[in-house]
Design a protein around this nucleic acid. Structure first.
Length: 267
DNA sequence: CGATTTTGACCGGCGC
DNA sequence: GCGCCGGTCAAAATCG
């Protein structure tokens, strides 16, 4: 990933000025420079988005070809009658599931059964698999939404507990999420989403992302969550989050703001 | 002090 | 009807 170098300094002359005219010129120049930077950033972001979409298409193409050969072992249905329902769900989703493995700290895949004939109580159901660090025992998954945990259970077919979450962004949002480690591979978190978000905005996403990041070191980019954000929105979020975590950016921002205030006051 | 998490209790569906 | 099990509730604990 190429680095994005942006001059965030404002170069404002906050000292005493000879005339009011020169300070106005400085402001105009500074404004023009900022506009130029903004344009550069926009172009770069567009470029990144295009490249990202291209890579995503290629990846999906490759993984789709491999899906047919993906014969992950299923549990013996005769040995556990209570697993029949889960088995049915798993079978229904299997054709749409892609598991991406990587040598990074985590990898992400996104699966929806939107196109599948399987429907569960007319609610959209999607599954997301996230590879996490083996040392990470948390069941928190960063996906940009604000979740409130309302329960945890140990299920029969899996030694690791399953956590139940509700979307707390909007009180009326019906979306629920279940997170559990994969029985086959404990380093994979499986999140099952039910329903669609009924709120357009993601007001506190940055705060949520930062909050979740602090709770779980395994945070990563969640791509194209069902009923959620577009790829571009995810990308912008991650970039914004990275920027706000960068002390240099924060310091530059503080300098810029204080400079503006001083300039305003001195005028 | 409000929001969130934890965790035992409770409920309902399902199979026998 | 009974027992099992997944899902939810809600009070207490914890966090920021």
């Amino acid at each position: 990933m190429e680095s994005t170098c942006v001059d965030t300094s404002l170069n404002l002359n906050v000292g005493p000025r000879d005339t009011q005219e020169t300070s106005s010129e400085d402001l105009v120049q500074e404004l023009n420079r900022l506009n130029s930077e903004n344009q550069k950033l926009t172009e770069r972001l567009t470029h990144l988005s295009e490249r990202f979409n291209l890579l995503k298409k290629q990846l999906i193409q490759v993984m789709t070809n491999n899906t047919d050969n993906n014969t992950s072992p299923e549990r013996d249905p005769t040995s556990d009658q209570s697993s029949r329902k889960r088995k049915a769900e798993t079978e229904a989703c299997k054709d749409n599931m892609i598991s991406i493995s990587g040598n990074n700290t985590e990898s992400i895949s996104n699966i929806t059964d939107e196109d599948s004939s399987f429907r569960r109580q007319s609610a959209k159901v999607s599954r997301v698999m996230v590879r996490i660090q083996p040392s990470d025992t948390s069941l928190y998954l960063r996906d940009g939404y604000q979740w409130r945990k309302y329960g945890q259970k140990v299920t029969r077919d899996n030694p690791s507990p399953r956590a139940y979450f509700r979307c707390s962004f909007a009180p009326s949002c019906p979306v629920k999420k279940k997170v559990q480690r994969s029985a086959e591979d404990p380093t994979v978190l499986v999140a099952t989403y039910e329903g669609e978000h009924n709120h357009g905005g993601h007001g506190s996403e940055l705060a949520t992302l930062a909050s979740n990041q602090s709770k779980s070191e395994s945070g990563g980019i969640i791509l194209g969550e069902n009923g959620g954000k577009s790829m571009q929105q995810c990308l912008v979020q991650q970039m914004a989050t990275s920027l706000t975590r960068d002390p240099n950016f924060t310091a530059a921002l503080a300098t810029a703001i204080s400079g503006r205030i001083l300039n305003f006051v001195s005028n």
